[in-house]
Design a protein around this nucleic acid. Structure first.
Lengths: 212, 212
DNA sequence: ATTTTGATGATACAGCCGTACCAACTTCGT
DNA sequence: ACGAAGTTGGTACGGCTGTATCATCAAAAT
């Protein structure tokens, strides 16, 4: 048989090119030809690995969320060996903020997809709308743990707090993305919010940890 | 001179048609021909009143924010004659949530514009990015008033709270938009958050006020 | 009444898009 | 060595887009 090329790897490379272009010029502006040029291959090849543009977009979305999930996991892992619930939650939320270029691209492209999904049925049925659900479950569990350990202030409802924290960090994320807020301000706000959930301030503040 | 047609009125009608189509099929999918058909006029007329598509889009954005501002103002006015700061803030934030069709369209189109503005310089320089600033000022002032009146809990920083509240309601808004949360859940979260800022629960809760 | 100017319509054009087609090349099995 | 199958490139097609052109009509001014 012919050249031994790892199809999955090739697909990953091309999808990566798609995400790069989308991050640079906006998802709405990427064409098949742009992706091909960015990946350094011919237009035909892009068609070969993803028969249609829609499939390419869907694959790109999947790849985007996967990579982001890994990134967040790594950042949480870096938070320490036996971190308290607040530390883990802080790491989780901060990792979701578009503070560096990679994360900025993620937010931009992900939000583009989310907007498209409102008017595109095929996109709306995609599981990427279910990823936040998983995050909610995890956050709720973490808050429940903290509650049992007596770390939270009285009257804290884990699920409601989880939803609020996710919405807050999502809102802060987009406001950073559009250049409305600085990373510093966002960290301050997040810090204050966590102060109202937890009894004790965990270690150093988020704001201090940002060199901005 | 020729037929006395109010140009501004005409422009408003056409821009309204643009927003309707954008709300139905997504901003990325609207073409000049779609707008013309929706407005019941010829393509040429759309070109006549807005020479270029970019100008049409910018006018549509301005119109969108204006209409939304009026809507919010009306909803706040409906909150009562001498409402307390919390009531006003609640009305403000709830009016920003996409609970009915009109507001849903606003959120969708506005978010579309925001996403585009990240990669489009002309859009980024548009003042619609400054509207949230005005909202922040107003919220900060309201919270400051509440603080002076002794209505808030100790340790409340008006500006940080304002930023947090806006980010929270923006995040809740988009999560409602993509069908991830119900209006009820969003109201609950907002309620809880306000409970942590204010000493007393204002009148009835937001959640109770929603028939959902 | 005629000219002038604003308002409207039909149609054409150039460019880009996603996709399809066809030819060529590479590498493996026999 | 030969052919088959996987892989790649060049190019063309149909459709849609925003914009421009040309012509027509209506109404006010002289």
């Amino acid at each position: 048989m012919p050249k031994r090329v790892d199809h999955d790897e090739r697909r990953t490379e091309i999808a990566e090119a798609l995400l790069r272009v989308a991050g640079r010029r906006g998802l709405h502006a990427v064409g098949m030809r742009d992706v091909a040029a960015e990946a350094g291959v011919s237009l035909r090849l892009v068609q070969y690995y993803f028969e249609t543009k829609e499939k390419l977009l869907l694959h790109g979305l999947r790849q985007l969320t996967e990579r982001f999930g890994e990134r967040v996991a790594a950042q949480v892992r870096a938070a320490g060996d036996h971190p308290g619930p607040r530390t883990v939650i802080e790491a989780l939320l901060m990792a979701s903020l578009p503070l560096d270029e990679e994360s900025r691209v993620f937010h931009l492209v992900y939000t583009s997809y989310a907007v498209l999904s409102v008017t595109d049925r095929a996109l709306a049925e995609q599981p990427f709308i279910r990823d936040p659900e998983a995050a909610e479950e995890r956050l709720t569990a973490l808050l429940g743990l903290a509650e049992e350990a007596g770390l939270t202030r009285p009257g804290v409802d884990a699920r409601i707090e989880a939803v609020g924290l996710l919405a807050l960090s999502a809102g802060l994320g987009t406001s950073i993305l559009v250049g409305q807020r600085s990373a510093r301000t966002a960290a301050d706000v997040l810090d204050r919010h966590l102060d109202r959930i937890f009894r004790d301030r965990g270690g150093s503040s988020l704001a201090e940890r940002i060199a901005q």
